[in-house]
Amino acid sequence: MSQDFSRAKRLLLPRQFKAVFDSPTGKVPGKNLLILARDNQLDHPRLGFVIGKKSVKLSVERNRLKRVIRESFRQHQHQLAGWDIVIVARKGLGDTENTELQQHFSKLWKRLSRLRTATPVDTEPKGLQSQNA
């Protein structure tokens, strides 16, 4: 998997965000933020942001947060394959320093990747599998 952050690795359409908000399969709360994730049946993860003016007042701060989070995501995307991820910012996130954000997101990505291994991929009961085979 390449380490880029191309258009294919972004959530762009409202229906993509809605799908994650309506039925998240993983929730990871963090300091002043929430990560929602949903299985996307792709070989790469996709990332989206919800950073409102009420949460982070200055556009400079909102853009800095997006830059730092994007870079962290880019570096850890190999362990996040198959997720659609939405970062929801809360008040106080804009006050966090870049190095603290990097460290915090490294931990959050690890927690999210552990959810993938804990969540069963196949939701069909075992008895039905043998009948269909």
Rank of each mutant, 00 (worst) to 15 (best):
R90I: 02
A37R: 13
V50T: 10
R90T: 01
K27C: 02
R114M: 12
P125K: 15
L108Y: 02
S2P: 15
L108D: 00
P29M: 01
K91I: 10
N32F: 15
T117A: 07
E71Y: 09
K54A: 09
L58F: 06
F105L: 02
D122R: 10
M1W: 13
R70H: 08
V68S: 10
K27S: 03
L112C: 02
F105H: 02
R67N: 00
L65M: 10
M1T: 03
G52Q: 05
S55Y: 03
A19Y: 05
Q103T: 04
D95I: 05
Q41N: 10
K91M: 03
D122P: 13
G30F: 12
R114A: 13
A133Q: 14
L93M: 11
S113A: 06
T25N: 14
H76Q: 15
A81F: 00
H104G: 13
T25Y: 14
G52W: 09
P120Y: 06
L34T: 07
H104Y: 08
S72Y: 01
S130K: 15
E97D: 09
F17A: 01
V86M: 11
E71F: 06
E61G: 04
N32S: 13
I51N: 11
K91F: 10
T117W: 14
Q129R: 13
K31T: 07
F73T: 01
T119L: 15
H104D: 10
Q3P: 05
L101D: 01
S6I: 03
L112M: 05
K54I: 03
G30C: 06
K126R: 15
K91C: 01
S2G: 14
I85G: 06
P120A: 10
K66R: 15
L80T: 04
A133E: 14
A19I: 03
S113W: 05
Q16L: 02
L42S: 07
K18G: 08
Q77G: 05
L58S: 06
A118I: 08
P24I: 02
D4G: 15
G92P: 07
G82S: 04
S2V: 01
W83L: 07
L34V: 08
A133K: 15
G30D: 00
W83C: 03
L42F: 10
Q41T: 08
Q131P: 02
K54S: 04
A81C: 06
R67I: 08
Q129L: 14
S113F: 04
Q129D: 05
L36Q: 07
T25L: 14
E100R: 11
G52D: 07
R67Q: 04
V88A: 02
L13I: 00
F105K: 00
W109F: 12
R116D: 02
R15Q: 09
A37C: 04
L115D: 00
T119R: 14
P125V: 15
K54Q: 11
A89K: 06
I87E: 01
L42A: 09
P14F: 09
R62G: 02
V50K: 07
N63T: 12
V56S: 11
K53W: 03
R74Q: 11
Q77H: 13
S113N: 02
W109K: 09
M1L: 12
Q41I: 02
T119V: 08
K54D: 09
V20I: 05
L112D: 07
K18Y: 05
T119M: 14
V50C: 10
T96P: 01
E71K: 12
F21R: 04
